[in-house]
Design a protein around this nucleic acid. Sequence first.
RNA 1: GGGUGGUUAGCUCAGUGGUAGAGCGCCUCGUUUACACCGAGGAUGUCGGGGGUUCGAAACCCUCACCGCCCA
Length: 865
Amino acid sequence: MSTRPELAAAFTPADIEGVLYKKWIEAGYFKADAKSSKPPFTIVIPPPNVTGSLHIGHALDHTLQDILIRMKRMKGFEALWLPGMDHAGIATQNVVEKQLAAQGLSRHDLGREDFVKKVWEWKAESGGAILDQMKRLGDSVDWSREAFTMDANLSHAVLEIFKRLYDADLIYRAERIINWCPRCLTALSDIEVDHKDIEGEFVQITYGDAGEDQISIATTRPETMLGDGAVAVNPDDDRYKHMIGKLVKLPYVNRMIPIIADELVDPEFGTGAVKVTAAHDPNDFEMAMRHNVPMVIIMNENAVMAGTNTQFDGMDRFDARRAVVEQLRKDGRIGWEKRPYMHSVGHCSRCDTIVEPRLSKQWFVKVAPLAKAAGDAVRDGRVKIEPEELSPRYFEWIDNMHDWCISRQLWWGHRIPVYYGPNGEVVVCGPNDTPPAGYEQDPDVLDTWFSSALWPFSTLGWPAQSEDLAKFYPTSVLVTGYDILFFWVARMMMWGLFAMDGVQPFHTIALHGLVRDKFGKKMSKSKGNVVDPIEFMDKYGSDALRFTLARGANPGSDQALAEEWIAGARNFATKLWNATRFANMNGATTQGDLPEFDSLDDVNKWILTRLDETVADVDQYLEKFEFAKACELIYHFAWDDLCDWYLELTKSSFAKGGSAATDTQRVLGHVLDQLLRLMHPMMPFITEELWCNLTGEETLVTAAWPKFDPSKRDEASIAAVAKVQDIVTEIRRFRNDQGIKTSARVIARFNGMKEAGLASYEDAIRFIVRCDNEDGNFTSKVEVAGITVEFDLSGAIDIKAERARLTKDLAAAEKDRNTAKVKIENEGFMAKAPMEVVQEIRQRLADTTADIERITSALAALPAE
RNA sequence: GGGUGGUUAGCUCAGUGGUAGAGCGCCUCGUUUACACCGAGGAUGUCGGGGGUUCGAAACCCUCACCGCCCA
């Protein structure tokens, strides 16, 4: 009866996904129009590293963003999801350097210019693998706006903000202790350092020669003693008070260093006296500043000892540690030694090398005013953090932020736009400035996060007053993992508020968690529990992966992921496929007006009511970023209400035909139509395929989002169908207990259907439970929902099974009655509980009492075995 | 050390005051024309321990224990 193409008997994701994505791109559905009169809805993608490939965390992050974007697009917003990548300074440089190393070359062999050229070549050939993988996932991003942090216009934005910050005295150059990675040979910011507990040593060392003043310090880094400028004690420590101000001789370097008093020293720690190595420890540096202690650098940039004029020069820092301890021990200067000693040590987040704190001249951002503004924007509600529980973490960090070291000793990145004149002049050049002749540019580049912090507006054309910027800034929501709250989110807040005259970069920060393995353990290469989203998509389809991830996404919390769950989501997709096939076979349609609601039978009223409730709740949950809850509702509506009940209940009606069948065809068409719309953001491929097949329309991508109308709900139909469900379930249970095969037909008589208002359902019920309406010898019965069903089992009733069944029911009813009875007999409850609760308990008591009577008499009526 | 989240079925997790839930797994039965990537039925919990508030606590308060994350 329909001209639509027949759906394949089985759903094969690979058959449709690529085709549909291509269709969407060609049709330009994902392109946002800055001239549109529709209200904007903007998300900028957290730019993945150009070196990266799609991991399961991206899959989650992108799925959630795509859900929001697709929903808003369907709701009539001008939806822009802006894709792009990050140049990932250190990571990318490492990749290319590794390639060079394979040919026995270093970047210095090529020189700066050629090396950078090489990196661009690498990007053109191998970079951006993730972009194609995003297409697999179905990301509805606007590819025409794809951005890269090193693009000309984005680089332009970097120069602009640098200049503005510099002019506002928010960027400065200073000699400070920074985190130095001796492998990457660059400075790192605090958050690029991971602190890990490792086994080290803690040793007591005596300074000063015999016969002179001596003092014992304790340290985990004996080799740095060569750079000590003082020994510090707590001013209130009676053990050392008399020594404050005296000088002791530092072994091997033979320098006289003072004993100073500083509150920072914890008398309980070690010997209560600590060495002060100003150039190699941030705390020591602070003390040194307060007490004018000299700062002695004792290592070169490779963390090899240098310039100490001792036998240790030329040794790697860890070799030097052993050698220094050995020498000290020989010289009788070692007291106690604790080894292994667990303590926290900073590691380079890029290459895991132990970071060396190092005195070095670098560029910094003065964060105080910027961070204050970033904190206030959340404090005063202009920016919402979802879930709210994560905002203390944001405040804690942003309110205590240290100045940000932004210079990196790399070649890949935005070169610092500062030029030095022959006489030490410093000139900062904006995008349109030309440096004075003879000036030399600073060799360093900027921290990658410096440019990604501009992402929400540099990608929209800033600093130009572009149409995009006017239409799509501020962005609507930022969706990202809580793990980069500090790296990226906080910095976008600072830059956005500064550059955009106080307008925040996004209205809402929606944070999600990390994807973990099926036991909730963190995925890691060493544990071997890392999963590949591409593999899952190949095996189960993108929709299945997306639905699984969305279904597990409770705001801000991690989720466990197992292959079985994805298989389950694939099964769900198949279920939907088959439900649509069933609808097609039975002439479901979306053409013409829906029959008048009041004219429909209860089953149709019921499914429409349930649909309306589901649409309303799903809508609300998605607006609140409650993806897991939204998916859960969809899953149960589609599987339980629609497939398990509605489709089953309609079968007899379709078999009979007539006007009831016609109504049902239209209602079924409508319900599927709306359900597919509702599911499209989560499962875009299969819903597109099924919906176009069902409706004959071109695309679901731009179809209207379902509306809901609580006035079109019918509570009575809910109650009626609940009764029908009880009856069916009870008969099935009886049949099951009696060992009657599902396919076997049984003669049964239904009593009291009319009185219960269920007469019109008898046929449907009989159809489902295979009970024929014929005369018989009715030897057993089931009572449920106020009706009685008698069965002719040809005398072959299993009395034992029946007794067991009834006994079990009796026990349950007695237990229920008892809990109700206890409450009713409780004076406090009767006096204080709200009326409706009391009413409910009373009803329960009455119901269970009746149940008990009924079951007891049924048991008594059972013949002896 | 500071902050913060958690402890509910075998596993992973929902559940913010009124008879404990889901998915997966498990047991039994079943190929009845949408679907075996399925259907029907079933089993499974001192809701971490202890105390308190309340007519009523998985939920609120206190306390202890254990696990996790962030920051130092």
